[in-house]
Write a protein that binds this DNA or RNA. Sequence first.
DNA 1: ATTTGTGCAAATCGTTTGCATCTGA
DNA 2: TCAGATGCAAACGATTTGCACAAAT
Lengths: 139, 139
Amino acid sequence: MPEFRNDNELQKALRGAGLRPTRQRMALAELLFGQGDRHLTAETLHEEAQRNAVSVSLATVYNTLHQFTEAGLLREVAIEGSKTYFDTNTSDHCHFFLEREGTLEDISPEAIDFNRLPEPPAGMKISRVDVLVRLVEQD
Amino acid sequence: MPEFRNDNELQKALRGAGLRPTRQRMALAELLFGQGDRHLTAETLHEEAQRNAVSVSLATVYNTLHQFTEAGLLREVAIEGSKTYFDTNTSDHCHFFLEREGTLEDISPEAIDFNRLPEPPAGMKISRVDVLVRLVEQD
DNA sequence: ATTTGTGCAAATCGTTTGCATCTGA
DNA sequence: TCAGATGCAAACGATTTGCACAAAT
């Protein structure tokens, strides 16, 4: 859950990841990390950038999201369907998925607890456990 | 986990789902349900059909997979990335995902056990819990 | 005969890429 | 200066759709 108080910290974070703190990356990072935890797609972020008079191409948004993900600043969330979601909360946690709206919400890590996890097959190890709790309207 | 001993049972199942037992649907159903639990994509199934001299168009494979899913004969599995996977095992279970190969394996239901599940927000209920255990080679 | 399904090719959607241009160190 | 970034438009892969034809009831 990266947290940045000012542009200097942000610049340092980008530099630390081997990324030049360009105008576009700084602007996107501010949108991404400036308002708590968020779940968004490339399109969402692109639109938001335009609304905020930040001029970035969609291609750059994609590039940036992937670079930030590699740098550990974002996490990809696997949902069925076409779009890729990015989560600004990179800590270990699960998600609610509102099926009607197609949106994600974090679940606090304490709210889910495993009794047992399966043994990985020989030669393999668990890299991550994704849990998606699907929600629908109550009938 | 649908199980069909012969074409008659299969026909009945399709009819029960409001689907005409056409040549193509019967052939695809045999491929899908004739050999235990499977995880496949539209392309996979299409190729397999061609290898078995079953002539179906890719569009029909897509249609059929979705119709079978709606009918409860298949289950979609959410993986990140482009392709959609279908699982012939419709019972409640989790998956291993082999990241290197991009393939799925069932996990026996007993191997995973939740201590606690989160309370759904007001007015919502849990429709399903998807668990994906990601595996990588041991280092 | 009427309804439903099929195949093909074109259309769509999200995403990626090639390449010329620009920018930050 | 010059590697690295950006933007645009074209390319792409998976999936969907429109429509004429074929098959099932």
